[in-house]
């Protein structure tokens, strides 16, 4: 297929027309290397959108553009338009720090700060000049990430003393605490055991009542369990030999897994992909 044609956009068929993030013809470069090409992708409010696809197709790259974390990578460049509630995120007048306060991120590897559990959760609020009741915010965030009961008696202990699964939920709590509107998750469960994974997935069902979530995952079952919408990316080699990623198909999760329109999607979700 020609990747520059606009893939089937499902958003017109959605009942919920409230689009939080609009991705219009976005290409992403690392220096001269084009990692992602011509992506159109609209994220509806209070949905979970899963990004799936083979390794190296640019899922993380795209995700990092939604909160301008790619700004930290020297040479990274975005073309096209990413609009958050109608505002162009890459407008020169936009402060990337402010963007990241509204669009939080949870990373593949749990990365709590070497501080107490309490301070980990309070960190974002403190730097945002939060004036309210900090104890209450910390409790609410930890409850929100289903961690409160496990840590309520040891809030003063180091965040690093928790298990991997608990650490990841701590990182989710930390993100909820800044009260963002969108949460980006890059393979949040890839280092977790099945039980912790299920916990985090349950959590996502809870969280989407309040937040909009974009999640990258390699786990098909996970995508089909948690996501309302799924975007399948693929990578294609150019004449020069380098590979670029592009969006193959974006639709309701049910359609992607049961009635994909593209052969590549069909191959990938049924495991026939190399």
């Amino acid at each position: 297929m020609n990747p520059s044609t606009r893939p089937n956009s499902a958003s017109d068929t959605l009942e919920n027309n409230d689009i939080v993030i609009r991705t219009e013809n976005v290409s992403i470069f690392y220096g001269a290397f084009q990692a992602v090409r011509n992506v159109f992708l609209d994220v509806p409010k209070n949905n979970v959108v899963a990004l799936i696809g083979p390794s190296g197709c640019g899922k993380s790259t795209l995700l990092r553009c939604y909160n301008r974390l790619n700004d930290l990578i020297p040479g990274a460049r975005v073309e096209g338009k990413i609009a958050y509630q109608g505002v162009d995120l890459y407008d020169p007048k936009i402060d990337p720090v402010e963007v990241r306060r509204r669009i939080g991120m949870v990373f593949q590897k749990a990365n709590p700060f070497p501080k107490s559990i309490y301070e980990n959760v309070a960190f974002g609020a403190r730097i945002n000049g939060f004036k309210g009741n900090m104890d209450e915010l910390v409790e609410r965030s930890l409850r929100g990430s289903a961690l409160w009961d496990e840590v309520k008696d040891k809030l003063k202990e180091s965040g690093l003393s928790l298990s991997g699964g608990q650490q990841q939920r701590l990182c989710i709590a930390r993100t909820i605490a800044i009260e963002p509107e969108v949460i980006l998750m890059d393979e949040p469960c890839s280092a977790l055991d099945p039980i912790s994974t299920l916990r985090v997935e349950d959590l996502m069902h809870e969280l989407k009542k309040q937040f909009t979530i974009i999640i990258v995952t390699h786990n098909m079952q996970q995508a089909s369990r948690v996501a309302d919408m799924t975007a399948f990316f693929n990578a294609e080699a150019t004449e020069g030999g380098s590979r670029f990623g592009y969006l193959v198909e974006y639709d309701k999760t049910y359609n992607i897994f049961n009635a994909p329109k593209q052969q590549a999607t069909q191959d990938y979700v049924s495991g026939r992909f190399g």
């Binding site: 974390l69 963007v99 939080g104 990373f107 990365n111 700060f113 974002g124 930390r174």
Partner: peptide, 15 residues
């Protein structure tokens, strides 16, 4: 220091 620490902090909107 692990780079994830930096990302985590920036990701929460720290300057």
């Amino acid at each position: 220091l692990p780079p994830q620490l930096r990302q985590g902090s920036y990701g929460l909107g720290a300057t």
